[in-house]
Design a protein around this nucleic acid. Sequence first.
DNA 1: GCATCCCGCCAGCCG
DNA 2: CGGCTGGCGGGATGC
Length: 376
Amino acid sequence: MSSFLSRESEPNSRTFYCRKEKSLGLLCSNFLALYNHDSIQTIGLDDAASKLGVERRRIYDVVNILESIGVVARKGKNQYSWKGFGEIPRALEKLKEEALKENFYISGCNKSLRVLDENGSRGSFNLKIDGQDNPSESSKHIALPFGCLDTKREKSLWLITQNFVKLFLCSDAEIITLDSAAVALLGDVHNSTAMRTKVRRLYDIANVFSSMNLIEKTHHPESRKPAFRWLGWGAKLRNGSTTALALNESKKRMFGTEITNHSLKRMKANSSVHRKLNQKENMAMHIKHECVENDNKMKQHLKQSSRGFVFGPFTPGVMPTGYKNERPVGDWESLASTYKPQYLNQALSDLFAHYMEAWKSWYAEVAGKGETHFSP
DNA sequence: GCATCCCGCCAGCCG
DNA sequence: CGGCTGGCGGGATGC
């Protein structure tokens, strides 16, 4: 049953490793929330890693994927610049164009996915992302001598991501399984090791894309196999109320709560308690908390989060003026009070309240940004 | 069991 | 040589 609830005994001596809490998708959401501000110009990888409470290695993953759709751009060593979501449509457009030029196509939705290039030597596409407002940076991504370009680049997360997107963009079938994508991007179905590796990467990519609601997980109609459906970027923005990020805002894991992540290895027990909510307790619009580590500390952090403590993406410093305006957040309040009682304990409810608050300010900002500016 | 995919080793590259 | 990058796949977790 509630096997996840580790409430009982040692309130402070055991922890459970919770994988979800550390997913790339969540990390991505947090990353985006943290840097999605006009004021953000440069993103330092170290900064990101420490603010989000993860190893630098993970930041590379996120950043590489984001870069492939234009959200960030590599500036130099250790530095990326924030381009913003506005770049996404452009980047997608560009990818689509490229895909068409490259004879990038797939046929059918579940089988015989195929990617071709002019010479039949798969993978030697001529991909470049930037272009528009990234003049001299064009080659920055590949700081490699020409010789080893293909091999290295061919396998980069960046390229895989772009090709993955192309698959969707050039496909009528909106649903693609990772296996078929892997086959398409690899060509060599016989190399099972390579396949496995490719699929692993695709999972990573799918994760962050899911967190941005660029794609969504489903099942293939016939094969019943797990698969992904392309949602694209435009749809959600128009939808007014929900943005990809908005949905995920609430899933914040506790990146930024220094105590965890870095040292918390799976299997390893340390001094934190951790709870997981029942799935049923999700509130409407997909908001759900995942695992909550370290209730007590968490609680404290939440309380003081309006002071100096860096609560991941919700750092006060990042959201300077609180709510710029009162927009359609009213319902959130009622929703909040509606759902709050369901939470098991005070900490969670606090946490929830915090989320609501953070979400509101975030929402206000985004809403204000999208259309008319209320305050300059 | 199989689908997922975190984690960190370690190999290139760069300054 | 040390630091930055990031491919890669072992093996734990989730369902």
